[in-house]
């Protein structure tokens, strides 16, 4: 249970986030804030997979792409509503993840990573070449504005509140799942898959659930992105995009919910500050990852749990394991 102090912090941050667009009159920074929200959803959903079950997904951009194109195609051709497309894009992305998962989650090691990497590229190339469906390299323009009770949601302020709500829902549901039987099973799989199976955890099924849940949110993020920019093309969903999302998770810290939030915020703001070096964006990300690995391998917000994983001798609370047979009563 959250203590009073924690509740106060949550409450004040919520107020601050809600008031934010009224203080920031500058449209540019509002757009940055929206992109931060979008990347928080992407990085947090990737973290659910990489940080909680330890399946190393590199191709998150592929699922993001599927969500965006599902939304763009259905909205421009069949006039589906934004609110229906949010879950629908997530579901379509999750369906693709089932295909990937069924094929690779039984294997151990890097097979899953390699498949997601390839999958991401296959999706991008398919989108680029299946011109009758996706208009190929021309992209899909003219994605209509979302409507709410007859209102067109056109301003950045509206999009800010939409992404704020989505991020809030995503993090809230993630937190609830993580602190339930399902989340414990996920973490157990990350820690020791053999032991988890010996405890009766159907590891294959739970890895699949995890992948579905994570990629669903990538699809939702894709749908939001399509409506926000009103134009999408395959260029937005390259492997580089996938690596950027991964960098946010690594810099922020895996295996806890706040890490990717901080990672997404810092790695979205950083390139904006160094705008005149835009072409160096990925170099900055690469440097950020290297610096983090060297100085703080658990990430900016790395949980104390993971910090102990890497700095074991500093933080341990009990005497180290004794040699066998030594006369020492446990503390």
């Amino acid at each position: 249970m959250a203590s009073f102090k924690q509740k106060l912090v949550y409450f004040l941050s919520a107020i601050a986030l809600l008031m934010f667009p009224w203080f920031i009159q500058n449209d540019y920074w509002l757009r940055v804030a929206i992109m931060i929200g979008l990347y928080i959803i992407l990085a947090s959903s990737l973290n659910l997979i990489n940080g909680y079950t330890g399946q190393f997904n590199i191709g998150h951009a592929g699922f993001y792409c599927i969500g965006a194109y599902t939304a763009a195609i259905l909205a421009t051709r069949y006039h589906f509503s934004f609110w229906l497309l949010l879950p629908l894009s997530g579901i379509v992305a999750a369906l693709f993840s089932i295909l990937i998962g069924l094929a690779t989650l039984r294997l151990k090691g890097i097979y899953f990573s390699m498949t997601t990497l390839g999958f991401s590229e296959i999706i991008r190339l398919t989108v680029l070449n299946w011109a009758s469906l996706t208009r190929g390299p021309m992209g899909i323009p003219g994605i209509p504005l979302p409507e709410l009770f007859g209102f067109h949601l056109a301003s950045n302020r509206h999009f800010y509140y939409i992404v704020l709500a989505l991020t809030g829902i995503m993090l809230f549901l993630s937190k609830r799942v993580i602190s339930s039987r399902i989340g414990r099973a996920w973490i157990a799989i990350r820690e020791d898959e053999d032991a988890a199976r010996a405890m009766g955890v159907e590891t294959f099924r739970y890895k699949l659930y995890n992948l579905i849940f994570g990629t669903f949110w990538a699809g939702v993020a894709g749908c939001f992105y399509a409506f926000f920019t009103s134009f999408i093309s395959a260029d937005s969903f390259t492997l580089d995009e996938g690596f950027s999302i991964l960098a946010m998770v690594l810099v922020g810290g895996q295996g806890n919910l706040i890490g990717p939030v901080i990672g997404a915020a810092s790695l979205t703001i950083l390139p904006e500050i160094f705008r005149n070096m835009a072409q160096l964006r990925l170099v900055i990300f690469g440097a950020a990852i290297l610096i983090m690995i060297y100085l703080r391998p658990q990430g900016l917000a790395g949980s104390s749990i993971l910090s102990q994983k890497y700095h074991y001798p500093k933080i341990q609370r009990h005497s180290p394991p004794k040699h066998q047979g030594q006369q020492e009563v446990s503390p």
Partner: peptide, 22 residues
């Protein structure tokens, strides 16, 4: 083969996986 970076209680909680159905 403990779940090293989980608490002691959480390790035992995993044992109830088969008896719960959340």
């Amino acid at each position: 083969k403990l779940f090293k970076y989980m608490s002691v209680l959480d390790n035992v909680k995993i044992g109830f996986h088969t008896q719960t159905e959340t």
